[in-house]
Amino acid sequence: MGGFVVLAVLLLLFLLPWWVLLASGAHWPFPVVLGGGVLFGAALLAFPALMALGHGRRRLDWAARTGDTILGVIWVLFAWSALGGVLRLVMVAAGAGGRTPARAVSVAVTAVAVVLLAWGWTEAMRLPRIREVEIALPRLGPGLDGTRVVVLTDTHYGPIDRTRWSARVADAVNALAPDVVCHAGDIADGTIAQRREQVAPLATIRSGLAKIYVTGNHEYFGEAQGWLDHMAGLGWESLHNRHLVVERGGDRLVLAGVDDRTAASSGLAGHHADLPAALTGADPALPVLLVAHQPQQVSQAVAAGVDLQISGHTHGGQIWPFHYLVRLDQPVVQGLSRHGERTQLYTSRGAGYWGPPFRIFAPSEISLLVLRSST
């Protein structure tokens, strides 16, 4: 059953753009129709094999790069072809059918897609923007007022080598003079051996109080425990369902971290999101900053009386209009939100990208959260 659903989705993704661009009454010259049909057909046939080779057991980076790019291109074409198809139907209903309007819609959809893909590639590859947000935590002591928490999440080091980008990101984080740096998971796609050089600049990141890391769902596609150990070797505190306490000016803050919510189904012994274990031994009078990869984990944070949860995972939708689908699974897509009487949630759009090397209407970010006390 699942295979039929995947096949149906693939056919829809490829056939709708083919219909709007080539077969909806535009009556393009035969060479154009033939060439376009061959291109769509070849991409449709090659896509499953490329994804299997790139993201399956063999992990061939060239196949992943090609398959991911095809996925991004076809998604953009599909989204704008859907809008173009609706416009086309409205025009026909209004009596404006014929070859000229059909060609105009086809050209417009193609032009918009080309521009957005070029812009989206640039956005994905650029140094993330700094997004600064002040967050008031009533239980935070005055000694910790102004604490600077930098959130670096969803770096997704992958088949496109971004070692130089990684070094620039580390420099940008250090320039913010952080007290605490959080990596909220999805560090890389691939094995440690494959991504070691891209991850290495994370060792150069400095913080006044702590550098903490938790697993995301992508770590559980492979070497989750290995990434926890590797990050510890780079000087980060890997918060595997545990906490630590930082202090400044006589006031203290609990920094807690839990595994991703998918950890329990990974089959990896000892891995599951366990917030009670993470807070065991913590003074209940102290404010708690929790790092949990997925915003959906905020329900447990509310129950535990957490003051602030930091998450990533959503990428802000990454490629419009995918954020509508993300919203079906997560309580928020990006930014600061309140849950319950005490708990606030900050969801970062992330620094990198997953799969398609594009970001469209969902810019990447390095988040600077300035914590404020009630006084």
Rank of each mutant, 00 (worst) to 15 (best):
V90Y: 06
A94M: 13
L255K: 00
A113L: 02
T122R: 14
A273P: 04
G67S: 03
V92G: 12
D251R: 07
G249I: 02
H27Y: 13
V32Y: 04
R103T: 09
V246E: 03
S337G: 06
P284A: 06
V169G: 08
D251H: 15
L71N: 13
L279E: 01
A108V: 05
D154C: 10
S373P: 02
R131K: 14
P357R: 08
M91Q: 12
Q309C: 06
V258I: 07
G235N: 00
P276H: 00
M51Y: 13
T375R: 14
R129A: 15
L15Y: 09
L202W: 12
L345V: 13
L308D: 00
P331T: 09
R195H: 11
H315T: 06
T163G: 09
G352P: 01
G267N: 10
A184F: 06
I319P: 03
L209C: 07
D68Y: 07
R252A: 13
A303H: 14
M1H: 13
G185C: 08
P321M: 07
F14D: 04
H156F: 12
W165P: 08
G305L: 10
A304S: 11
G250R: 10
W18C: 12
L202Y: 11
G233T: 00
R88L: 15
L345M: 12
L117E: 05
K211V: 11
G54C: 03
L34H: 08
L117N: 03
M51F: 11
I135N: 01
E123T: 14
W62G: 11
E365A: 10
G36H: 05
I187S: 14
A188V: 13
P17A: 07
A43W: 09
E247M: 09
T262S: 14
G257S: 02
V258Q: 00
V33M: 15
A82V: 13
Q344H: 11
I319D: 06
D329C: 15
G36T: 01
I310T: 09
G41W: 10
L202P: 06
E341T: 13
L268Y: 14
G95S: 03
E341S: 14
